[in-house]
Amino acid sequence: MIPAAFEYARPTTVDEALQAIADGGDDVKVLAGGQSLIPVMRLRLAAPETVVDLARVAELRGVRDDGDAIVIGAMTTHHDVMIDPLVQQYAPLIAEATETVADRQVRARGTFGGALVHADPAGDLPAVALALDAEFVIAGLQGRRTVPAAEFFVDYLTTAVEEGELLVEIRIPKLAGEWGMRYEKFNRVAQAWSIVAVAAVVRRENGRIAEARIGLTNMGSTPLRATAVEAALAGAPASPETIAAAARSAAEGTSPSSDLNAQADYREHLAQVLTRRAVTAAAGL
């Protein structure tokens, strides 16, 4: 459990961090909270040439109000996200899902941005970000760009963050109207990753579901939106029967893997049950 030798940089600003990444050689890994990177390095599944540790980049921490969005710094820890009043007010789904991430110790060190940029399909926050239509602000030496969640998650452990770039903040649009949210996580022991989970965000209007956004965790190599369910729910009456019928399409367009916890067909089944439960709760039924 000893990592291979590596160079180590500990910048204090985003600019310094980008420079350290540029100077770091062929294989640079960015250390955010280290809750995924350190284990794979200790098992020598990853042996980066340089590790750039963002722990001292103060500008990457914290949550702020930015008018029509709240902005979460990439290095804000899970714990700090969970207890943040802005998050609780405008994006309680994030707080709810973050509470299910691993255990207290991991939440004290792991970061919001780190979990998203790691893009583990079994991780809880990517599907939540997808359901909330989050935007990802990515910095490079040439400046900053913003990528919508729908384009951020590219493949297994792969995001739109290019070599030499850094995820710096995540913008969560404030939602207008009567929204309900729910994260339904399914796992075998408390601190484990999701076997399948469903993030549901539902806007109700006059007894109908005006809009539903549903993010699926671990139903493919990236987090996915259950678009068929969303379409079936849009404008439908907010009744258990409608929701149950719509939820049957939850696995459409997914390609879940088979592993010790679940084979693909069982994951597809779980996606349907959990979608029904998440949407039902989010719809306030």
Binding site: S36, P39, V40, L43, R44, L45, A46, H118, D120, P121, A122, G123, Y156, L157, A192, W193, S194, N218, S257, S258, D259, L260, N261, A262, Q263
Partner: peptide, 22 residues
């Protein structure tokens, strides 16, 4: 029977078994 692959989670372990020898 269960599928034998290590869990899809955490981008690492999967079926790594030899403490560093892949």
């Amino acid at each position: 029977d269960r599928a034998t692959a290590g869990t899809n989670a955490w981008g690492g372990a999967q079926t790594e078994t030899t403490a560093g020898v892949s």
